[in-house]
Design a protein around this nucleic acid. Sequence first.
DNA 1: GCGACAG
DNA 2: ATCTTGTCGC
Length: 259
Amino acid sequence: MPDPLHDWTLSPEESIELQRRLAPRVERRDRLDDNAVNVLAGVDIGFEDEGETTRAAVVLLAWPDLEPIEEIVHREPTRIPYIPGLLSFREIPAALGAFEQLSRRPDLVMVDGQGIAHPRRLGVASHLGLWLDLPTIGIAKKRLCGRHGEVPDVRGEWAWLTDRRRKEDPEDVQLDAEGRVIIGAMLRSRQGVKPVIVSPGHRISQATALQWVIACLGRTKLPEPTRLADRLASRRGRRFRDPGSQDTLGLDDGSQTLK
DNA sequence: GCGACAG
DNA sequence: ATCTTGTCGC
């Protein structure tokens, strides 16, 4: 009998069932030593060939200077289509392929997507955190579920993202004044730009997740870890690499250690 | 029953 | 996510 965590070929119904079993395992309290954080990671997934190829990018950054120290790009055939709520089953296999090639494990991981701000509280950041057994934070550009009030158009301002209580919510979940479950925060990472959604993935609290993302903000909408991974995983990033040699194209495993 | 719907 | 040029604004 295969470990349920290793099965990425489930039907949508089975995937949802697996999420219900895994959600309770997600730790929502801090379990990372802030003073022992030396390496951060940013993860993002992109697609090529009309979606037939999945491209995972992972960037390691030194803390606190936020300078990239290693980056990996891993490609593999896409397994399943995109289904809202089941994103992790489509993206995690490739992400794991990239993580296997890293020379070292990061202390904290930032993922492009939701953490517990998910209908079953198991967004891609939480799912990946469980798999890697590492603290993770989800940084999404769009909302999957929940509601929120207005967020002042001032960098650093934020507002809670809340949702109605669900069966999979722990007894001790954080509730707002109206008794709604706090699943994340809408953070104005940059003035004049739509807020990003910050939600705990695994082994981290709402407050600490927000604190780390704010600490990694530059002048752009996305925090450095995710911004760099995004650039690596997106098609746009390809335009910026070696205009020269063509004979090595396709032979490169995509990995490289930066100086 | 009618919308909403991460990447 | 991806297909895609120029263009408005700090």
